[in-house]
């Protein structure tokens, strides 16, 4: 009897978990399946199936341009955010520096400010410094958004680094710069790779910052947004499916890297 009562919550929890998995996966599955519908409009049920929408998307100049543009922005963002983030992490990890806690708190500030406010403050900022909206402004905003996450990832790794590793390098005659390049950077590498992929994903995903800071050239989310607002056809679904699969693969790889880094 007692045993029976103990099992009841467990069964309920298992059911709850699978219901939640269904809740998470169902909309995406529906979205992907719609990309195979052989009709010019989006509606269930799907009677005829086709692959033609993928052909349309892969020949769509606008889509390919947006992919290249988003990839470029993500690449630039990642480089900038990694350099700045690691730099800040080195300062915060350095025990000789006064006010480290305050620097860390301020470095994390963009991560706690709601996304829209962040975007608007950047929009105001670039107008004050006379930077036009467009590529540079987007990269700047994406970098500001990504830096806190790189700082946290790099810092976690730096804190687990035995201090005597760099001391040993110095004792063996390396100057601080060479010790940094040959010891600290390789030690940080797994966390950095995870952090970099995270930067790529947040940059490709970002909608609100690009919405306020973008020029006439659409990034991927802007393109999808414009298509969703201006009449829908399964072409959007094919587009979104391609993007979804690509980003999911990148995400899986990042997950694998960060798990390996923790071991």
């Amino acid at each position: 009897m007692r045993h029976y009562f103990n099992d009841l919550p467990k069964t309920a929890l298992t059911a709850g978990y699978w219901l939640f998995v269904a809740y998470l996966l169902l909309p995406l599955t529906l979205m992907m399946s719609m990309s195979f519908k052989d009709a010019n409009f989006i509606a269930f049920p799907i009677q005829d199936w086709t692959l033609r929408w993928y052909g349309v998307v892969l020949q769509d100049r606008q889509f390919l341009d947006a992919v290249a543009y988003s990839a470029f922005i993500a690449f630039a963002t990642t480089i900038c955010a990694t350099v700045i983030g690691v730099w800040i992490a080195l300062v915060v990890a350095n025990e000789g520096i006064w006010g480290r806690a305050a620097i860390f708190a301020l470095a994390c500030l963009p991560a706690v400010v709601p996304g829209l406010i962040n975007a608007i403050s950047m929009r105001i900022f670039i107008r004050v410094i006379d930077l036009p909206t467009g590529t540079a402004a987007i990269i700047l905003a994406h970098t500001v958004h990504a830096v806190p996450f790189v700082v946290i990832m790099a810092l976690t790794r730096l804190r687990s680094m035995p201090r005597n590793l760099t001391d040993a390098a110095r004792d063996l005659g390396a100057d601080p710069f060479i010790a940094f390049v040959r010891v600290t950077i390789p030690y940080l590498m797994p966390a950095l790779l995870g952090g970099m992929i995270f930067c790529v994903l947040t940059s490709i995903d970002d909608f609100v910052r690009t919405f306020f800071l973008g020029g006439y050239k659409p990034t991927l989310p802007m393109l999808i947004f414009a298509k969703v607002q201006g009449g829908m056809s399964p072409q959007i679904n094919a587009m979104a499916t391609i993007v979804l699969i690509a980003t999911a693969l990148i995400g899986l790889y990042a997950e694998y890297l960060t798990r390996r880094a923790r071991k």
């Binding site: 979205m31 969703v228 999911a248």
Partner: peptide
């Protein structure tokens, strides 16, 4: 790992 917009669209 799907973007904000793709999930909203779904």
């Amino acid at each position: 790992w799907a973007g904000e917009l793709i999930r909203t669209f779904s």
